[in-house]
């Protein structure tokens, strides 16, 4: 078992105990929030998993990936992770469903599974995040925001493939 998680959990508990946080109550409070988040995302997870499964079972996904494979191979990106990479900037729930498919198809510890896992965290849902915050700021022209965010997304995706040997 990797030590990263142990260290992190110890850090959480240690910080809590030092600052006299009632750790059990705090845990329950957070867990309750986690459960309600999971319940909130379940309908969209169902919707997206259905659509993605339909798309791949009728053979369209295969064609889409075959089309993009040369470019992916050039950048060292495994072709199984291409759908995830493409959907990442568009929708959080779609990319979550996509990651689940890759983990179950290729195995969570295969190279494709590892790259997909790293890719998932390397950038946010670019269009959604920018949309929400731009609306909050009330500005009309986003100037260089979207191109720069997409450059970050591309760099993150390629870095994800490089980070997994």
């Amino acid at each position: 078992m990797n030590g990263t998680l142990c260290v992190f959990l110890l850090l959480c508990l240690g910080c809590g105990l030092i600052h006299r946080v009632p750790v059990y109550d705090a845990f329950l409070e957070g867990a309750k929030e986690g459960i309600s988040t999971a319940r909130r995302i379940l309908p969209s997870l169902i919707a997206m998993l259905c659509v993605i499964r339909a798309f791949s079972s009728c053979g369209l996904m295969e064609r889409l990936c075959a089309l993009l494979e040369p470019a992916a191979a050039w950048a060292g990106i495994p072709k199984e992770t291409l759908p995830l990479m493409l959907f990442k900037p568009l929708s959080g729930s779609a990319s979550l469903a996509m990651l689940r498919e890759i983990l179950n198809e290729c195995g969570p510890d295969s190279r494709a599974g590892l790259v997909a896992s790293v890719m998932m965290g390397s950038s946010e849902t670019v269009f959604y995040t920018c949309g929400v915050y731009l609306a909050a700021a009330g500005v009309k022209k986003s100037r260089h925001t979207i191109p720069c965010a997409l450059a970050a997304w591309l760099a993150g995706s390629i870095a994800a493939s490089l980070a997994v040997p």
Binding site: C12, G16, F27, G34, T37
Partner: peptide, 20 residues
């Protein structure tokens, strides 16, 4: 997902309550 998610949110909430 809900189980593991609740676990991490619980742990992170301890960190948050500690003023981290």
């Amino acid at each position: 997902l809900a189980g593991a998610y609740a676990f991490f949110c619980g742990m992170l909430n301890i960190l948050r309550r500690a003023g981290t």
